[in-house]
Nucleic acid binder design. Structure first.
Lengths: 155, 155
DNA sequence: TTCCTTGCAAACGATTTGCATTGGA
DNA sequence: TCCAATGCAAATCGTTTGCAAGGAA
């Protein structure tokens, strides 16, 4: 359930500023607990579960509080929530913070790796996605390819 | 949580035969209950939850039995399990039975619609996916685009 | 003071499992 | 006959919520 990759990472301070602004606009505080959650997620690649997050946060945060932070952050659009193969919720920075990317999902160990496409591929994909959306009278908000298979560790 | 679309549907009998063979090879029986599940899923577009399935199966099947059927069928590779926005499991025929397709996910009502790509787009997408997989030493088993947005009913 | 946030414990809901019964090859 | 499949009820487990205490504006 670990992950690795490379991605353009903005300075930590700038990240905090952007999140703080967003939360303020939503009328909620950017408290220490929420800040720790955001920083933890910014430090890893791939979405994390609440359980994994508590391990990373040395100071033991009660799960209920953690879930509340995650819920608030997701509601404010700071985090994206998805679900792994076993249905457990996983969180990652939203695209406007963490960048647009896709997922490699290992069917063996469940690890999720982030990948960026080169510009040409990304554009080709976006074109396909928006064409489909239009043909179905669907208002596209985003798209993502999930590539399923077996990661190098498991094969 | 409903859905609509078009897709090549094989004759019901042939579907049963293919599933029966697969299950026999896996050493499990193709019982009446399992047959009803498979037929229900073949009759709709988009993945269904266990709860939705019980409604469709007039004869009231206990949830526990239904879940056992779904687990067996997914384990045998007859069904694919995914999860909706709230983490509830949804099942659909595996691609070798139901055909390769992609999903339009409505962020408002949660409906999932199936979409087929034209040959050219599908090939372009496959090429991108396999190129990514290779570059990450990942053994690709499959891929799918999820297009998120607002469906025509909700907008 | 006034709300928002946090802890703790209890409540929830989807899914799973133990066990006894039923049913098909 | 014999083992897989099924029902029912109880158990799990991730996640949510009620309520009282703590904190920031």
């Amino acid at each position: 359930m670990t992950t690795s990759s490379q991605r353009q990472t903005a300075p930590a301070g700038e990240l905090d500023d952007r999140v703080a602004l967003r939360l303020r606009q939503g009328g909620v505080r950017y408290t220490g607990g929420r800040r720790r959650v955001v920083r933890s997620l910014a430090a890893v690649e791939g979405p994390m579960s609440a359980a994994e997050l508590t391990e990373r946060l040395d100071e033991s945060v009660p799960l209920s509080s953690l879930y509340r932070s995650l819920t608030v952050l997701a509601g404010a659009g700071v985090l994206d929530r998805s679900h792994d193969a076993s249905g457990v919720a996983r969180f990652e920075l939203s695209e406007w913070l963490g960048g647009h990317h896709h997922h490699l999902v290992c069917l063996e160990c469940g690890a999720v790796d982030d990948v960026d496409l080169n510009e040409a591929d990304e554009e080709a994909l976006s074109t396909i996605a928006s064409r489909v959306a239009v043909s179905k009278s669907f208002t596209e908000v985003g798209h993502r390819i999930d590539i399923e298979g077996i990661c190098s560790k498991c094969s």
